[in-house]
Amino acid sequence: MSKKEALTRAAAELLWERGYTGTSPAMILERAQAGQGSMYHHFSGKAELAVAGMAYMSDQLRSRTEEVLSGEGSAAARVNAFLDLERDPLAGCRMGRLAQDYEVVADDGLRVTMADFFTWLSERLSAVLAEGVRAGEFRPDTDPDVMASLIMASVQGGYVLARAHQDPAAFRRAVDGAKQVVASLVVDPNRG
Rank of each mutant, 00 (worst) to 15 (best):
A81Q: 08
T142K: 10
A91M: 11
K179V: 01
S44D: 11
A81N: 11
R173Q: 09
A77H: 12
E66C: 06
V133F: 04
L49I: 02
L98T: 07
Y56P: 01
L29Q: 08
H165M: 15
D84C: 14
R173W: 08
N80P: 01
F117I: 00
S44K: 13
D145H: 13
E30C: 06
T8A: 10
M152P: 00
A170Q: 13
L110A: 05
R62H: 05
V182M: 07
V104I: 13
K46L: 04
L85Y: 06
V51L: 05
M1L: 01
D101K: 03
G22E: 08
V79D: 03
A164N: 07
R163A: 11
L49P: 01
C93T: 04
D108P: 09
N190E: 15
S149K: 13
G73E: 06
V68S: 05
K4D: 08
E103T: 09
A162M: 13
T23L: 00
R62M: 10
D141A: 15
Q180I: 11
A55W: 00
S70M: 08
G132M: 04
A52T: 09
D143M: 02
F118D: 03
L69M: 14
D167C: 11
A178D: 03
E66F: 00
A55S: 07
A178V: 02
P89N: 10
A130W: 01
M147H: 10
E67V: 03
D107K: 05
G136K: 10
L85V: 09
A77Q: 14
M57T: 09
A178T: 03
L83C: 11
E66A: 11
M152G: 07
S58L: 01
A178F: 02
A115G: 09
A169D: 11
I28N: 02
I28G: 02
T113V: 13
E66N: 12
F82S: 03
T23F: 03
V155A: 04
A135V: 05
L7M: 10
S2V: 07
Q33K: 04
P168L: 01
M152W: 00
E137R: 04
A52S: 13
C93H: 08
L69F: 07
M27V: 02
E30Q: 15
N80H: 13
M39Y: 03
G19D: 01
A50W: 01
G109M: 03
A55H: 01
R134Y: 04
D59E: 15
L161C: 07
Q36W: 13
A178K: 02
L161I: 02
D141N: 14
G92D: 09
